[in-house]
């Protein structure tokens, strides 16, 4: 784990309501917290539950974090086209974009120094019979790309953020995390 004095990642996770954006954001924040990293988590909260836009802002750092609000993310995990159009142009130089290529055919213009990874998250989630697990696939891919926290650490944090009545879905979600990680590992 690389949490030296310079670690700082401002992650925006975005999609539409119902894709599990808030849950996966909480999972990343919980994982970071259990790994001893400074972290803030800010959801967009809306009257809309399904169909509206949703995003989570997670700042992780080796130093205490003053402002929890992200204007220019260093990492973007994006699950639908509307959110890609909104957030991709704002990603910082040398940043990271992991996008859901099942729903996004093409990213809008963004800085050429950005590391871009396409993950067909909905297709993968469908293959493993966990169609609601696309969010976990995306997070698995992000974790590998950043190489700061591991999928195992996220797996350990998962029961803390998932409501007890959904704990029967733990194995399916862990599988989704692993599949996302595999995709990212293959592309290097």
């Amino acid at each position: 784990m690389d949490t030296n004095n310079n670690y700082h990642d401002e992650v925006t996770i975005a999609g539409f309501g119902g894709q599990g954006i808030i849950l996966v954001g909480k999972l990343l924040a919980q994982t970071a917290m259990q790994a001893g990293i400074e972290v803030t988590y800010m959801p967009s909260y809306g009257a809309e539950i399904r169909g509206g836009t949703a995003n989570s802002m997670i700042i992780m750092s080796s130093k205490p974090i003053p402002s929890p609000v992200i204007t220019y993310p260093t990492s973007l995990v994006v699950m639908n086209k509307a959110s890609a159009d909104k957030f991709a142009p704002r990603v910082e130089e040398n940043g990271l974009i992991v996008y859901n290529s099942s729903l996004i055919d093409k990213l809008p213009s963004h800085n050429s120094s950005i590391d871009v990874l396409a993950v067909n998250a909905d297709d993968i989630a469908g293959e493993i019979n966990n169609p609601r697990g696309a969010n976990m696939v995306m997070l698995g891919a992000y974790l590998i790309k950043r190489n700061v926290m591991t999928v195992d650490q996220a797996t350990e944090a998962l029961p803390k953020v998932l409501a007890k009545r959904y704990h029967k879905t733990l194995p399916a979600n862990i599988e989704a995390l692993r599949r996302g990680a595999e995709v990212a590992s293959k592309t290097g």
Binding site: K26, A29, M33, E38, V39, T40, Y41, M42, P43, Y45, I65, P68, V69
Partner: peptide
């Protein structure tokens, strides 16, 4: 405010 109400931190 809404940020403090909704956000999480350790």
């Amino acid at each position: 405010d809404g940020i403090l109400g909704q956000m999480m931190e350790p």
